[in-house]
Amino acid sequence: MRASKILSVLVDNKPGTLFRVTHLVRLMRLNIEGLTLGVTNGGDTCRMTFTLNGDDRTVEHVARQLMKVIDVIEAHTYGPQEVTARELALVSLKKFDPIQFGEEERQRLNVIDRSTAGVVVQIVGTAGEIDEFVRRAGESNVIDIARTGVAALPKEKQNA
């Protein structure tokens, strides 16, 4: 079945590792729909979170083969239900009227820039919540969008 899968990879924080990882993703003809990465462990390692569109078998094949890549410390795949995931988006709008949104949704929003051309709104939420915000803001109202892609941690890890 084709669906979004999360591939979480912990690597040594040094040049070239993203290239080594994405080589395998490309080899298996997977499209990267989201990618976040940032240093962890005081700069020692880097966690990459890929959102990939592909069947389970292919994504798992990539995760397993990644364990052979010398700069990779860990690689795991997760279904959307197995992780806690958040994404940040900056949405540039011609007009922004907070009244249009409910109380709960407004808490996720933050106006970070106002200019004569429009308003830049920051939203943090699940990928679905961001999609919903863009829909409600109105397609013709949107000037541009920059999404970070999701950062995700497995649910069992937080409980442990």
């Binding site: 070239g16 290239f19 080594r20 080589h23 080899l27 010398i70």
Partner: peptide
């Protein structure tokens, strides 16, 4: 050459 050979080496 690091780019070229990465897919066919154990390490570069």
């Amino acid at each position: 050459v690091v780019g070229v050979l990465t897919p066919v080496t154990k390490y570069t």
